[in-house]
Design a protein around this nucleic acid. Structure first.
Lengths: 203, 203
DNA sequence: GGCGAGATTGACTCGCCAGTCAATCTGGGA
DNA sequence: TCCCAGATTGACTGGCGAGTCAATCTCGCC
């Protein structure tokens, strides 16, 4: 075989994906040109099309890669029977916030260009996004059955409110609507859980 | 003056705006062509540019018109000293849900194309959108000062969670993630307030 | 009845950029 | 050393659609 080391090919592909994250985060998916990605990656224009069928596929890849990690994390949390529902939600909130802390550009791209892009990409990945809602709803449903949560609200609704609150906070950080210092990250995890589980009402 | 009845000009303009709502809701802002708007309005292509400087300005106009109504509604609710904070939030949730019931296409366009379009239009109108968050945060802050709400969470955070929950529910209706029958609309108002104020925890 | 300001028309221009492709390079195997 | 599959290059094309503009129409006024 005359194929170059397949490791190197994978690295080039990765290099393009990483460059895409930077460019998408900086300029937005629709505003940037494919040549911007190639330039950022230090690679010729055409090579992007050697590794990906289209500009769309680059973003799809970034999203699916990361979202599958998120889904796996939620499933793992849910499987831990020793955790109360409140702690499970805490763990999920924590995972998402830590994802943002670890790679804010990637999370920005996923939220801004996919999750919140209800037309273009959000619509295409609706089923995938919905999986996360459903998993969270399942946790709520079990907690309601066991009496840990009240049954005043449907699980589907609770899941939407929970996920919506987290996403809104990340969006707040992304667009400087909310202070985003390191200590705010940890506080946010508590705030989300406290608000959704405990409510705003005085005790 | 040789100007045609200014009433008729205003009506033509309105006609174009209404057509734009239909087209944007159906096809999305980026996917539709200006000629689609003109066709839907039963008007020549060029006339759109007689009344609006650009395609963007059409959407800007739709958003600002409606958002100002929302801001006015929130201010009015807030000004009513006889209302508890919980009731104020209930009234705001109700107003938004009723807006959706009354004109789902318009609300879809505003949410999908502006409010959640964090890059393009969402960014342009960030300050305007933020006004709503700030108004809600103010209500929370006063309730915390009076002891109605606990101080466990910052007002800015509570406002984001509250607004995020409502928007997520509307998004759920828009994309059929959540049942959207008439009775669900009224239930949703209670759910949002119940979740944010009362929390999921069993009493 | 005829004038003219503004309304209305729609064919056309023009820039942009995703995607193509033929040419060139490179490195591992024989 | 030579060969060639696959990697890499970047100039080029093709289509699309926003915005322009000169021509035409319409209606209120004198």
């Amino acid at each position: 075989m005359a194929t170059r080391n397949p490791r190197q090919a994978a690295e080039k592909r990765r290099q393009i994906l990483d460059a895409a994250v930077v460019v998408f985060a900086r300029q937005g998916f629709h505003t940037c040109r494919v040549s911007d990605i190639a330039d950022e990656a230090g690679v010729a224009y055409g090579l992007v099309y050697h590794y990906f069928r289209s500009k769309d596929e680059v973003l799809d890849t970034l999203f699916l890669e990361r979202w599958d990690v998120l889904l796996a994390a939620i499933r793992e949390v849910d499987a831990d029977a020793s955790l109360a529902a409140r702690d499970k939600l805490r763990a999920i909130a924590s995972f998402i916030v830590e994802s943002y802390r670890h790679d804010p550009d990637l999370m920005k791209v996923i939220i801004v260009e996919v999750t919140r892009a209800a037309n273009s990409f959000g619509r295409r990945h609706l089923a995938k996004i919905r999986e996360a809602y459903d998993l969270i709803a399942e946790i709520v449903a079990k907690a309601q059955a066991s009496g840990e949560f009240s049954g005043a609200v449907t699980p589907a609704f609770a899941a939407l409110a929970f996920y919506g609150a987290i996403e809104q906070v990340l969006t707040g950080w992304i667009f400087d609507l909310l202070p985003g210092a390191p200590e705010d990250y940890d506080q946010a995890k508590d705030f989300v859980v406290e608000t959704i589980c405990g409510g705003l009402d005085a005790a």
